[in-house]
Amino acid sequence: MSPTPAKRAVANPAAPARLRVGFILANHFTLTAFSTFVDTLRLAADEGDGSRQILCNWTVMSASGHPVRSSCGIEVLPQAGLSNPAKFDYIAVIGGLLHKGPQIDATTESYLREAAAAGVPLIGVCTGSFVLARARLMSGRRCCVSWYHHRDLIDEFGDIEPISDRIFLVDGDRITCSGGAGAADLAAMLVSRHVGEQSARKSLNVLLFDAPRPASSTQPAPPYVLQGASERVRRASLLMEQSLAEPLAIEAIARRLVMSARQLDRLFQAELGVGPAAVYRAMRVEHGRWMLQGTTRPIADVASLTGFADSAHFSRAFRKQFGMTPSQWRQRLAQGPTELVPSDDTASSERRIF
């Protein structure tokens, strides 16, 4: 006799969905953030690969009904107009490019305020958090934002606390997510909460994620904020921040800011007490320290990913900044949690850059 197959729960098409999410796509939204979020719901919604909206339900809404163009140029056709917010357990705004004109129209912004007044939890994914903030729906809140847009949030909103050391954040009835692959982890958290942990794990396994990551999981790069710096110095530091593995020449950074390398050096010296090259090097070493602590990568790989010619160059710079070698730092970490304090040999102005 053949073995009796194990019984398993079967989704009931007649039962109401346990998790209902309404999506609003901002102009030039990030396709990855949307697709990983909605696919996590899709894979949890039905048995096998049926993709029926049984346990989970999702609706892409729009005030105009016109296709919404993503940042990569692919357009998505909304399924419905702006529906009664009470139909949803959550309304998620998927953001994208910040500086390509209005992200949403006035009608959609009013709809989000209506949803908030009705007590429907709002989710901001990627720069969807900026959409919520511009609608004055994040005042006094903590907001998870990608390290890439950390400074943008600080510059635009003075009453919101930016959090860039985790992948998503639940602050009452506001949930914000840094975007990218983190959208799948956020969606899995919602699936686990409303449908079940096994369904959440199934979704992520099919998407080739090892396991759900908690909200406190760190983003793959930390923010480097130059405290009290002028706009031009911050813009220069952002260019550095975006090119850690393949450092830009200081002359190239200056050209991007329409100034000479000498002018840029004087600006950094006046505001930070050190030149841009020193700031860039400190930034790369700090990023290397973060990778040594947050990953198991070999030191040679860390050196390469922070733009150093080899591990010897990285080790010398690390020792100068922190008073010990990368190997010694990892040995200390193996003994338990510890804080790495900049070396007294490092110039005081350079030690307080970040």
Rank of each mutant, 00 (worst) to 15 (best):
V285A: 10
V285D: 13
V285Y: 10
E286D: 15
H287P: 01
H287Q: 08
H287M: 09
H287C: 09
H287N: 13
G288C: 05
G288S: 07
G288T: 01
G288I: 02
R289T: 01
R289C: 06
R289P: 01
R289N: 06
M291R: 12
L292P: 01
L292R: 07
L292H: 04
L292F: 00
L292I: 05
Q293D: 10
G294E: 13
G294C: 12
G294W: 01
G294I: 00
T295E: 10
T296N: 14
T296S: 15
T296K: 14
T296W: 04
R297G: 00
R297Y: 10
P298D: 04
P298N: 07
P298T: 00
I299P: 06
I299D: 02
I299F: 01
I299Y: 01
A300V: 11
A300L: 08
A300W: 01
A300F: 00
D301A: 13
D301E: 15
V302P: 10
V302T: 10
V302F: 06
V302Q: 09
V302E: 08
A303Y: 09
A303F: 07
S304I: 06
S304W: 12
S304Q: 15
S304T: 12
S304G: 14
S304A: 15
S304P: 03
L305T: 02
L305K: 07
L305E: 11
L305P: 03
L305R: 11
T306S: 15
T306Y: 05
G307C: 05
F308W: 09
F308I: 04
F308E: 03
A309M: 09
A309K: 10
A309C: 05
A309L: 11
A309P: 00
A309N: 08
D310P: 06
D310W: 02
D310R: 06
D310Y: 02
S311E: 05
S311P: 04
A312P: 00
H313M: 11
H313K: 12
F314Y: 13
S315P: 08
R316T: 11
R316Q: 14
R316W: 01
A317E: 12
A317L: 04
F318D: 07
F318L: 04
F318V: 02
F318E: 03
R319M: 10
R319C: 09
R319Y: 05
K320D: 13
K320E: 14
K320T: 11
K320G: 12
K320R: 15
Q321W: 11
Q321G: 08
Q321H: 15
F322S: 09
G323S: 08
G323H: 06
M324T: 04
M324A: 11
M324Q: 15
T325F: 08
T325A: 12
P326D: 02
P326R: 02
S327E: 14
S327A: 14
S327R: 13
Q328H: 07
Q328P: 00
Q328K: 13
W329H: 13
W329T: 04
R330Q: 13
R330D: 01
R330H: 04
R330M: 07
